[in-house]
Design a protein around this nucleic acid. Structure first.
Length: 259
DNA sequence: ATGTCGAATAGGATTCGA
């Protein structure tokens, strides 16, 4: 089963590019971030026509996550537990049953800039809530996948110009420590486990010719539970689509799971 | 000196968020 994550930066602006990529890459499950639409305005028909079931957790203008799946999505949960006052749509979970059941969580972790400040406080608090949810799910000892835009550059080798990110919420020591705390629960950065070494990016800013200069960062991640890692057979970043017309600033990251 | 983009509001340029 091929499971991908892709921050599309607006479903309306990206529908055509997304359709092209879905046809080529043929993922079984896709975690989408920044749909920037409500559940009502998401263009369900287009993707149903391509053979996907769809579950969304949207909001107007900003954020919003969704799951597309060729297999039925069961036990869908929307929103990250732990703060009833949080109105930002950044978390969705569902179970997909292939050869065996996988619990799949799609997430759009807060950017956090400018740091310090309230947005950075929200990011760190959100990461702590995510940790609590990960811990709960890990107790099930089932295969789990936490995929999405983490807005965290885990290590210097995950940026072309690490010095440019020193004061940025994506790379500050507290952000990296919070990401490490997720790993320390017993989760694995599936891409990094299979592809050690620098120069592997999932995001290139629209500004300052970042793509042309390969000034990228690796901020989209798939964290897997031990039981999911046992089933991992491949990983990849579909970098090439960043060079197409009207691209997102992110590209898809995928894992292949024997499930 | 963000060399940019998407969405909302408003009915075109501006603001926000990234």
């Amino acid at each position: 089963m091929k499971i991908a994550t892709f921050n599309i930066n607006g479903i309306k602006a990206r529908a055509e590019a997304l359709i092209d990529w879905l046809r080529e890459a043929a993922p079984d499950v896709v975690l989408l971030q920044e749909i920037k639409s409500t559940d009502e305005t998401f263009p369900h028909e287009i993707f149903e026509g391509l053979g996907y079931f769809i579950e969304t957790h949207g909001q107007k203008s900003f954020n919003g996550v969704a799951i597309l799946s060729k297999l039925p999505l069961e036990d869908v949960e929307r929103g990250l537990p732990g703060d009833d006052s949080d109105e930002q749509a950044r978390w969705i979970e569902a179970t997909v049953v292939g050869k065996r059941a996988l619990r799949i969580c799609g997430l759009y972790l807060p950017n956090g800039n400018p740091a310090p400040g309230p947005k950075y406080d929200y990011k760190l608090a959100w990461m702590e809530r995510m940790r609590a949810r990960c811990r709960e799910l890990l107790a099930t000892e089932e295969p789990l996948i936490f995929g999405g835009d983490y807005n965290v550059i885990p290590q210097d080798e995950d940026a072309a110009k690490p010095e440019a990110w020193r004061e940025d919420a994506l790379a500050l020591p507290e952000s990296r420590a919070a990401f490490r705390r997720l790993l320390n629960l017993g989760l694995y950065d599936a891409f990094r486990a299979r592809e050690p070494g620098p120069g592997q990016y999932t995001f290139w800013d629209y500004q300052a010719g970042a793509w042309a200069r390969n000034n990228g960062i690796r901020i989209d991640h798939m964290l897997l539970s031990p039981q999911a890692m046992d089933l991992l057979t491949g990983v990849g970043i579909d970098k090439e689509i960043r060079g197409r017309d009207k691209p997102s600033d992110h590209v898809p990251l995928w894992v292949e799971i024997d499930a």
